[in-house]
């Protein structure tokens, strides 16, 4: 479903601030794979996600989605293949627009926008049912501006928007990291449910080792722009936080320790 081939990304090339964020990363996701991505600060996990999403162009290498070479497509052109949720709950929605208007924008992801009406009556029914599954009571507040919702509500809505039009690929960039623990759990539960119901191919970046172990069927760890651990299936199910710690220290040459945030989560 997704193939990342030898992708290199260097920021500020040719300056004193030059930083190699991805050092020839190769990764293949099969259809229905739910991979969690962990790693320390600056390991390249968010860069990998953003290079896949087309936010940054890659310096070399190729990216294929569903067999199609999308390397040269920019962010908005790749959007038709993927749903995305960001770390910042403010980033995934338009605050001055109503809940149903936001959903309508997401319903047309990757389609040519026309002069047809932005939200039709028939789709409002669909939105009402979909919102009800979030169990946040938003189905009765469809005309409310999104700016009035809490961070958790906005993140749940962004998640719904990401999967409203079933994506080939779901990209989650630490989407629960900015939420309080209870809300984060709720958003992660929703994430699991949506992914299972629709067998979505998913990449979820997280800082939290426990979340990385508990979710998904595959786990990769990044360090210094490379994938250093890649486990799946049985092996992943047996994985513990301690195992990951050992791997993490080995990957970072033993001189770095995982931050408290990675160990304990939020």
């Amino acid at each position: 479903m997704l193939r990342v081939e030898n992708v290199v990304k260097i920021f500020n090339r040719g300056t004193v601030n030059e930083k190699t964020a991805l050092e020839g990363v190769t990764l293949t996701l099969s259809e229905g794979d739910f991979v969690t991505v962990i790693g320390g600060n600056g390991a390249g996990k968010s860069t990998l996600l953003n290079v896949v999403a087309g936010v940054y162009p890659s310096d070399s290498g190729h990216i294929y989605i569903d067999g199609r070479d999308v390397t040269k497509l920019v962010e908005y052109q790749r959007a038709k293949y993927m749903g995305r949720v960001f770390q910042d709950p403010m980033m995934g929605t338009a605050a001055d627009m109503e809940i149903e208007e936001n959903l309508a924008l997401a319903m047309r992801r990757g389609q040519r926008r026309t002069l047809r009406w932005g939200v039709t009556a028939s789709e409002k029914k669909i939105y009402r049912d979909m919102l009800a599954t979030l169990e946040l009571g938003l189905e009765n507040r469809m005309g409310v501006k999104v700016g009035l919702l809490s961070g958790g509500q906005r993140q749940a809505l962004t998640l719904l928007m990401a999967i409203l039009k079933t994506p080939k690929l779901l990209l989650l960039d630490e989407h629960a990291a900015a939420l309080d623990p209870k809300t984060a759990r709720k958003v992660l539960e929703l994430t699991d449910r949506f992914i299972q119901e629709r067998t979505l191919t998913t990449m979820m970046v997280t800082h939290n080792m426990r979340d990385a172990i508990q979710h998904g069927n595959r786990l990769i760890m990044m360090s210094a722009g490379q994938i250093v651990v890649d486990v799946s299936g049985e092996q992943k199910m047996r994985l513990t936080v301690e195992d990951l710690m050992v791997e993490f220290e080995r990957a970072s040459g033993g001189d770095a320790i995982a931050s408290d945030r990675m160990l304990l989560g939020n």
Partner: peptide, 9 residues
């Protein structure tokens, strides 16, 4: 929100 708009294609 430019980010959101681009993410919607």
């Amino acid at each position: 929100n430019h980010n959101m708009v681009r993410a919607q294609g």
